[in-house]
Each structure stands twice: as C-alpha cells, then as structure tokens.
Write a protein that binds this DNA or RNA. Sequence first.
DNA 1: ATAAATGCAAACGGTTTGCGGCAAC
DNA 2: GTTGCCGCAAACCGTTTGCATTTAT
Lengths: 154, 154
Amino acid sequence: MYANAPTPVCNEAPEEYMKIFEDVCRQKKLRITPQRLEIYSELARATDHPTAEMLYQRLSAKMPTLSLDTVYRTLGTLISHDLVHKVESTQNQARFEVQHLHHHHVICRNCNAITDLTWNLVDHTNLQGELHAWGKVERAHMVVYGTCAQCRAQ
Amino acid sequence: MYANAPTPVCNEAPEEYMKIFEDVCRQKKLRITPQRLEIYSELARATDHPTAEMLYQRLSAKMPTLSLDTVYRTLGTLISHDLVHKVESTQNQARFEVQHLHHHHVICRNCNAITDLTWNLVDHTNLQGELHAWGKVERAHMVVYGTCAQCRAQ
DNA sequence: ATAAATGCAAACGGTTTGCGGCAAC
DNA sequence: GTTGCCGCAAACCGTTTGCATTTAT
C-alpha cells in the first residue's frame, strides 16, 4: 500500500534513518543538500506534524540562511517522491510528517494538536475489493476529530 | 456522534429538506435570507463536493448580485451550526457538503473528484473507548486516496 | 426599530514562482 | 562543466475582513 523503495522509519536511531534517507535520495537522483538533510531530519524527529513555518523556525538557529520557500520546495519534492506526507485536515495551513509506518490521526478541534493513531482493524480491511469499480486504491487514512483531555480540563 | 437538532437529509425531496432547513434556521436564530436558501439548496443538490467558487459560479446566473464572500461567510455560518461540512483533504481549495448521513470519502489523486463511501465497520467501532485517554471523540472520517477508473483508462 | 446579513473592495496569509547565483555531482 | 538547488523578492490565489447599505425579524 505504501512506497516500494526502502523507506526510512523514524523509530530507528537518527544515524540509521538519515543514512537510509541519503541512499533513497541517491537512488531517486535527488541531490543531497544540507537543507534537505536538515529539513528531513527535523521532520523525522518531530512528533507534532509541524507546518512548513514551524520547520523553518526550528531550523533557523542552526541554519540561518535557510529560506521558507526552500522548506516548501523541499517538502514538495519529498512528497512527490513519497518520503513525506501532507496530512489531511480541514485547516488552512498544511501539516507534514515523514512517511513511516502506516497510521491515522486524531486532531483536537480546540488546540489543533495532531496525534498518531494505529488502527489495525481498518488497515486490514480489503478496501480495494470493495472499491474495484471505483478505481485503484492507494491509501486509506482516518481522521478523528474531538477535544483532547488538556483542552477539556480547561 | 452528530448534530442533535433535526438535520435536513439530502435523500429527501428538495421541498422537504428546504423546509427542514428553514425550521432549523429559525430554531438557531439564523435569518432566512435568499442567499442562504440558494446556497444551501445548491450544496444539498450537488454530489461533487463543490468548492466555494464552484457554488458561486453555479448560482451566479440565478442570482447575479451574489458575491463570493457571501458564499464563504454563509458556508462558515452553516458549518459552525453543523449544517454543512468542510471535507478533509490535502488540497489547498476547501470543499464542502451538506451534513447528511455519516459517510466517508474517496478522492482521485488525478482529477480530484470526491466520491462518497459508506463503511459500517468503521462507524460501528467504539473509538471513544479506545481513545478515552486522549479526550472526547466527536467525529471519525476516512479519506481514501487512489486513481479513479476514468483516469486509469486514459 | 434593531440587529444581522450582504456586497464591495481591500487586505491577509499561506504557498508558489521567475530568476540569478551557487553548490552537488 | 553541467545541472539542479537555493535564496531573494515578487506574484498568486483562496479566504477573510472593515465598512456602509440593505434586509429580516
């Protein structure tokens, strides 16, 4: 259901998945630039599904010459090579994550926090069978909306 | 899991659900304006999850003085009263639907067509039970991505 | 009569793009 | 050396907003 090429998985140690990332880039003829390495590394480390702006700000200290449009361009490139995902939502600002093991998302309507959710029951359904008339299914992603415990407590 | 007030359902005849719509508006103290009636009616009739722009163009002939910002404002108002849904996606342009029976969506990556999908297995899972630690679950929506039959044929 | 909704036009903000220079290969 | 990537700045485009006017109640 996912990429065919070996894909970095963010459970592994940084040295591990950054090495794999470089291999995949070479394989796909993407140049290995300091910007790409930093952006991917930062996104892989993040667990909060940051926006392009958030990535930009987190990297600015370490890489002062980095520009926001490079972040956008890099994310776009990595998305088109299935190394990064844009997360489904109804918000205006896009949010991103590295493509690691398949999972779903829970979004707090109040603070917009995005949390990962695994749901095997859904992932193991033979959707393609149900939808063969529609076309070819590539990916099924669940978005759960609600109010997180912290926001409810307030 | 959904609205508590009687909700128009687009399976019914237009006269039916427009009458219900007016009742709900009165109940929620929303003024019944020609613009709101036309916008809701057009959206209820549509099966393609139109953008604000699409609604605006479809109504322009019938209602030449209608403005695009009124479409946006009206959709916003109806969304905040749970009469309309913004559909989850990774696209930049928002897409809308009237809130009728709960269902999910299949999106063609190529032509961006959005098709409805019912998936009882998902709807009948006790998600709240799984996520009680996270907070209060309000809505679970599946987004399936793929390539539709027409686009594959090309 | 009053408060809310509309239409206009201008602003806003996230994202994209053209271009010259620079860096990876 | 060649090609692709980066940074700058400006454009783009979907969406939002302030304001005066109109309209629903």
